[in-house]
Amino acid sequence: MPTVLLLTLSNLFMTTAWYWHLKAGSTKPLWVVILISWTIALVEYSLAVPANRIGYANGWSAGQLKIVQEAIALIIFGGFMSWVLGEPVTWRHLAAFGCIMGAVGFLFVGK
């Protein structure tokens, strides 16, 4: 559970680092946006690295860690896209998410 929690927190920061500037920073110079994003990303790395080490030490494979991270990233990005950027979540988004969740299931079956 610490792995999933840390991956969730890291994805909150990374999604913010990658996409906050599309609205909030659109008037800032690019170098300022990059500096701010890298600062936010530092927090993300500080959470993602321990998450992966803990998960791997507890028997998760690298593939399992990556696919769980992707599934978490899609959940967080869907919320960010909708709430922060004001874009609708469509059936295509949900279908793509369903495919990723299927991949998670395949990697954890029999584990």
Rank of each mutant, 00 (worst) to 15 (best):
V104Y: 04
W91E: 12
T8D: 04
N52D: 15
S10F: 02
G55W: 05
W18E: 14
F106C: 08
N58S: 05
V68Y: 12
S82R: 07
F108S: 09
R92Q: 15
L107R: 09
V109E: 05
T39L: 15
E70Y: 10
H21K: 11
L85C: 00
G105A: 11
S82V: 00
L74Y: 12
N52Y: 15
F80Y: 09
G63Q: 05
S82W: 08
A73L: 11
W91D: 13
V49D: 13
L6Q: 01
V32G: 05
F80A: 03
P88W: 01
L65V: 07
F80S: 01
K66L: 13
M1A: 11
L35G: 14
A62E: 14
G86F: 00
V68R: 05
A103E: 06
A95S: 14
I75F: 08
L9C: 05
N58Y: 09
G98H: 11
G98T: 13
G55P: 08
L74C: 13
C99A: 15
V32W: 12
V49G: 09
F97N: 10
W20I: 04
L47Y: 00
I36Q: 01
G79T: 04
S26C: 06
F80R: 05
E87H: 01
F80M: 02
I76H: 06
K66R: 11
L9V: 02
S61K: 10
V104L: 07
V32S: 13
V89Y: 03
M101R: 08
L7R: 11
V43Q: 04
Y19F: 07
F97A: 15
S10P: 10
T16I: 05
F80T: 00
V49C: 11
I54M: 04
S46M: 15
W91V: 15
L5E: 05
M101T: 00
I100W: 08
H21Q: 05
L30N: 14
L74I: 10
C99N: 10
S26T: 10
L6Y: 05
A57H: 06
Q64C: 08
V32Q: 13
Y45H: 10
G25Y: 00
A96Q: 09
R53W: 09
P50V: 09
L5V: 03
F77N: 04
V84R: 07
G59R: 02
Q69L: 14
L5A: 07
M1K: 06
W91I: 15
A62T: 15
L74W: 10
L47C: 04
V84I: 03
A103T: 09
P2F: 04
L30H: 13
G63Y: 01
W60Q: 13
R92S: 15
V104R: 01
A73P: 04
L35H: 06
L6E: 01
E44K: 05
F80N: 03
A24G: 02
G98W: 12
V32F: 13
